[in-house]
Design a protein around this nucleic acid. Structure first.
Lengths: 116, 116
DNA sequence: CATGAATGATACGGAGCCGAAACGGTTCCG
DNA sequence: CGGAACCGTTTCGGCTCCGTATCATTCATG
C-alpha cells in the first residue's frame, strides 16, 4: 500500500521541515542545489553535468555552478571520466552522505510529529 | 497512529517534489519564502512581521523583503492594524491559497508514487 | 587527418537576497 | 507632555545566483 498523506499533512510536513532547516545553521542550499544533491544521492550513477541538467530541466551552467558551490562545501566531488575525457563524473562524499542522511532523519521526525 | 516514513522514502519524496517544482515554471520561491508562506497559511492568525521573524529565527528585514516579493506575486497582502497602528497584519489572498493548495497536491501525489 | 559534434567551464551584465545599521511613525508610561 | 520602547521599513555594501553566449578540450566520422 502506498504512502497516504492528506494535503494538510503534506503542507504541515513541508512547513515543519523547512522551518527546521531555516532555523538550523547548516550550510543552506537553494531548491535547485537540493534537487541536484538528492538526485546524485538517490538516482543510480553515473552522474554527468549534462545528465543532471536534463533531469532538472535547467541549463548546464546552472549545474556547473551548483557543483562549484557544493564542491566547496565538500558535499560532492568531480572526477574526469577516463573513458571519455569530455565527461565529468559527479560522485558522493562522506560529508555529503552525512548531510543527506541527516536531512532524511529530520523529515522522518517531522512526519511522526504530524497531527492526524 | 502517526505517519510512518522511512528515511529513504522521505528523501525520495523531497527529491521528487523538488524536481517537480524546479521543472515547473511556477513563480519560484526561496526556502525562506516558502517557510513564511506556509506559516501564514497554516498557523493561526494574526501574523505580524515580528512574529514571523521570531518563528523563522531571522531578522525583520528578511520578512519585509519576502513580503515585498510575495506581495508583488499577489501571494500575500499587508494591512495596517487599526488597533495598534505600529503593526502590520499579513493576510492570505486567493492566489496564495491556490498556490499553497496546488503545492500540497503535488506532495500528496509524489507520496503516493513512492516505492515501498 | 580534418571537420563537426559534444562536453563542461567561463565571461558578462543583470537581478535578488543577505546582515547590519539607521530611520520615521506609533504607543506606552512616568 | 516628553522620553523610552516598539514596530516595520529603508539604506548600504557585498555576495550569489541567473541566462545567454562563448570558449577549450575531446571524441566520432568521413
Amino acid at each position: 500500500m502506498a504512502i497516504q498523506l492528506r494535503p494538510s499533512q503534506a503542507l504541515r510536513l513541508w512547513q515543519q521541515t523547512s522551518l527546521a532547516e531555516v532555523r538550523g545553521q547548516r550550510p543552506d542550499l537553494t531548491e535547485r542545489q537540493m534537487a541536484i544533491l538528492l538526485t546524485i544521492y538517490l538516482d543510480p550513477p553515473p552522474h554527468t553535468v549534462r545528465g543532471l541538467a536534463d533531469r532538472l530541466g535547467v541549463t548546464k551552467p546552472v549545474i556547473t555552478r551548483a557543483l562549484d558551490t557544493m564542491g566547496a562545501m565538500k558535499l560532492v566531488s568531480r572526477h574526469r571520466d577516463e573513458r571519455d575525457r569530455r565527461n565529468v563524473l559527479i560522485k558522493r562524499t562522506v560529508e555529503g552522505a552525512l548531510f543527506v542522511e541527516r536531512f532524511g532523519d529530520v523529515v522522518v521526525a517531522k512526519a511522526q510529529e504530524l497531527p492526524l
